[in-house]
């Protein structure tokens, strides 16, 4: 039983990332009708916002360490961050330690700006073009973005740890009435799940309970009528693109302590997130979230040794297998609406 609970927890945190990316993806599709293959790159750029802020905090000058030498026999130079000089060592090291959570504040404006520039500068020219053109141009954009990141940050993963207080793992077994050490789960992954729940809740609340959100939902249902009412729906949709970019970026920022970011991480998530959107139903926000968690949990169970022994290779295909079954039985996905991506 404890093994099952552990895999559900694994699925929830994996599903959190899928759901956050898929949410933005389906939001863009629902509003602008664009299939955005560069959405994974936005997740990656978010992660590199955390890397960048962490590096900015750690900008250093060299101080010689008396009596020690480097690999060439020269006096060993130790890096001392400038932030220590400004705030003192204790406060400075605390700021560096909290670089990832602080990156949220840095990433929001950066990601909104990236999103708006991407939409205004490139994607708006492809609104009336076939979906195949949109896929090609956004996929190309994703490759360009990842090569730019690789040029400046290199190809190797860059460790970006969580704050000291969130390192290590929590013993959930005791809370659930099991023996100590039976269900241990990394603290930061629990934080990630909580963060994803808050962001998803905030996006839904924004769309559900604000006038802006109401107009956007109306535009998603019938763009022409909303336009005829004198509302500049394009401007609102551009803002929604920025918002979707920010959601993907925040998912990336908070993911950095889980796996060291590299230039390819967006592509790793992109295909799975698309499957999540299709399974959830194109353009359906609750569908994307539900499918994200469902596929995350199924993927976790398929990785169990007992399951692999029973059906070899199932861990590599489970998501696609489930997608096929769902699309055969519910062609519009779990919560898809009639008329979306249909002639």
């Amino acid at each position: 039983m404890d093994a099952i609970i552990l895999q559900i927890l694994n699925g929830l945190d994996k599903g959190s990332a899928y759901a956050l990316i898929a949410l933005g993806l389906t939001l863009i599709f629902g509003t602008l009708g664009v299939v955005n293959f560069a959405h994974g790159a936005l997740f990656m750029i978010g992660a590199f916002c955390a890397v960048t802020l962490s590096r900015l905090f750690s900008l250093s000058h060299k101080v010689a360490v008396p009596g020690e030498t480097d690999f060439l026999g020269n006096p060993l130079m130790r890096d001392v961050p400038y932030i220590y000089d400004v705030f003192g060592e204790a406060t400075g090291s605390a700021i560096i330690d909290w670089a990832v959570p602080l990156s949220i504040l840095f990433a929001i404006p950066v990601m909104i700006a990236v999103g708006v520039i991407m939409e205004r500068g490139l994607i708006k020219h492809f609104y009336k073009r076939p979906h195949a053109d949109q896929i090609l141009v956004t996929f190309g954009l994703a490759i360009v973005l990842q090569e730019v990141i690789k040029y400046y940050y290199g190809a190797n993963p860059i460790p970006t740890p969580a704050p000291e207080m969130f390192k290590g793992s929590a013993d959930l077994g005791i809370l659930l009435g099991y023996e100590a050490n039976s269900i241990i789960y990394p603290t930061w992954r629990l934080v990630y799940f909580g963060f994803a729940a808050v962001v998803i809740g905030a996006v839904f609340a924004f769309l559900q309970f604000t006038t802006f959100g109401m107009v956007v939902r109306a535009g998603m249902a019938d763009r022409e009528t909303v336009g005829l009412l004198g509302i500049n729906i394009d401007k609102r949709f551009t803002i929604m693109f920025g918002l979707a970019a920010a959601v993907a970026g925040l998912a990336g920022v908070m993911y950095t302590p889980i796996n060291s970011p590299n230039y390819h991480m967006g592509m790793d998530f992109l295909v799975l997130s698309f499957v999540v959107v299709v399974v959830g139903g194109m353009g359906s926000l609750p569908g994307a979230v539900a499918a994200g968690f469902l596929l995350g949990i199924l993927e976790s169970f398929a990785s169990m040794r007992e399951v692999i022994n029973l059906i070899p290779g199932i861990n590599q295909v489970i998501i696609y297998l489930v997608a096929i079954i769902i699309l055969l039985t519910r062609p519009r996905g779990l919560m898809g609406r009639k008329g979306v991506m249909e002639d």
Binding site: D2, A3, L6, Q7, N10, G11, D13, K14, I184, P186, R189, I258, N259, M265, D268, E299, S300, F301, S303, M304, R305, I308, N315, Q316
Partner: peptide, 23 residues
């Protein structure tokens, strides 16, 4: 005790590591 193959494209190994704890 066990030898489990992991896909080369895998990025998050949590679901492969959790069973180690129970093995």
């Amino acid at each position: 005790v066990a030898a489990v193959k992991t896909p080369l494209t895998q990025t998050d190994f949590s679901s492969y590591i959790a069973p180690v704890l129970q093995s």
